[in-house]
Amino acid sequence: MSSSSRTNRELFINGILNENPIFRLALSMCPAVGISTTVMNGILLGIAVLFVQVFSSCTISLIRNHIHPRIRIPTYTLTIATWVTVIDLVLAAFFPTAYKSLGIFVRLIVVFCFITCRLDVFAARNRLFPSCIDALGMGCGFLLGMVVVGGVRELLGMGTLLGYNILGFRPMFFFALPAAGFFTIGFMTAAFNHMETVYNRKKSTSRGSAASGAGL
């Protein structure tokens, strides 16, 4: 089992950093572009996704020994669709304003690839607790990604954060426009890549120098 070699903390961090669905895997970008104009929207959708991911992972992990391998994918889809409908109904009933601002995206959680991916790769092979931790990590990673993109766009576009006026003016209204989501994500992914290369280079040079030192 892959989980035995990793601690729960590593599992949790993995979803947030190494396999961040938005910045590293570039999966399920549609909401990240479409409705991340404010931090609040990001948080709301992020929480919805977190719930769906955790509940589906737990469900699949519980019944993993009874799933026939040939109907694996339909079972996953059914599970996710059920939980998405549950979240959809609950949001519509108790948080109508939030539901309105998220629009069609709540229902589209069904087709978010990384959720299915996580069910197949992890939850179907591990026990309940590690699956739950893994799902939490993944969900938080998505939440974080949405919040960061939303924060940048809201701050630059409207000069506010969470609705509070921070800057007092609108530095670049362009970022509030829907199309700017692509640019925000593009530049942020580039920044992540750059940081990674710099980090790796540093590591390899230090190791290289150590190796050359050993060679001498």
Partner: peptide, 21 residues
Amino acid sequence: GLTISCLFAGVVLGGVYVITA
């Protein structure tokens, strides 16, 4: 297998719908 999962999903959804409606 599929029938049982569908039944289960149906029960969950129906319950939630009754509560939330």
